[in-house]
């Protein structure tokens, strides 16, 4: 067991009013060059909005998975059934996974997974951009010391390659990499 600083973004749903400033800030921050483009489809936080039913739920991109859930989940909020995708077609909980059942948290061009990195940078930001831009205080940043089991971490590249392998198969990815390394 080891001690680790865990960065947490707490979400106070009662305060979120669905303005999507978090999406703008996230997309701008992660653009290349930094702040050089805005495209909420690239944001690692998306706000589920159902305005007339008064439902606003920011959801953060978490992990990549190649399979769908065995069972989907639907939430009841303010007396209404709600899912993070489409209430009729694809019942799907407020989950941050990049998965085959929907187009959330996938790069619009490549389909690669998008995951919240809490705006890791050097030097570090005082708080993640989405939290900074949430003047409603619906997003609250916290750092906690937690005991964690030692385990190897997938870094961003490995996650990306894994998803490519799932999408195209190991052979094609290896072929592609081989070709790219030859031409460069």
């Amino acid at each position: 067991m080891a001690k680790k600083t865990v960065k947490i973004i707490k979400v106070d749903l009662d305060k979120c009013h669905g303005c999507r400033a978090c999406e703008v800030a996230c997309a701008a921050y992660h653009a290349k060059p930094k702040y050089g483009a805005v495209n909420p489809a690239r944001s690692r936080v998306r706000v589920y909005r159902d305005e007339l039913k008064n439902v606003f739920v920011p959801v953060f991109g978490t992990f990549y998975t190649k399979s769908e859930c065995a069972a989907r989940h639907m939430y009841r909020i303010n007396g209404n059934d709600q899912s993070a995708y489409d209430e009729d077609m694809s019942v799907c909980s407020f989950c941050g996974a990049t998965c085959p059942s929907r187009d959330l948290f996938k790069e619009p061009d490549s389909g690669l997974p998008l995951k919240c990195d809490v705006c890791e940078s050097d030097p570090p930001l005082e708080k993640p951009m989405c939290v900074k831009w949430c003047l409603a205080d619906a997003l609250i940043y916290e750092e906690r010391e937690e005991e964690v089991e030692d385990q190897p971490e997938f870094d961003e590249v490995e996650v990306a390659i894994e998803s490519l392998v799932d999408k195209f198969g190991m052979e094609k990815v290896l072929d592609g990499l081989a070709r790219m390394s030859k031409s460069s």
């Binding site: 653009a31 702040y35 483009a37």
Partner: peptide
């Protein structure tokens, strides 16, 4: 529905 980038000329200054 749009999923394309909107570009800004001088990003750091604009932000």
């Amino acid at each position: 529905r749009g999923t394309k980038d909107l570009y800004l000329a001088k990003p750091l200054e604009f932000m």
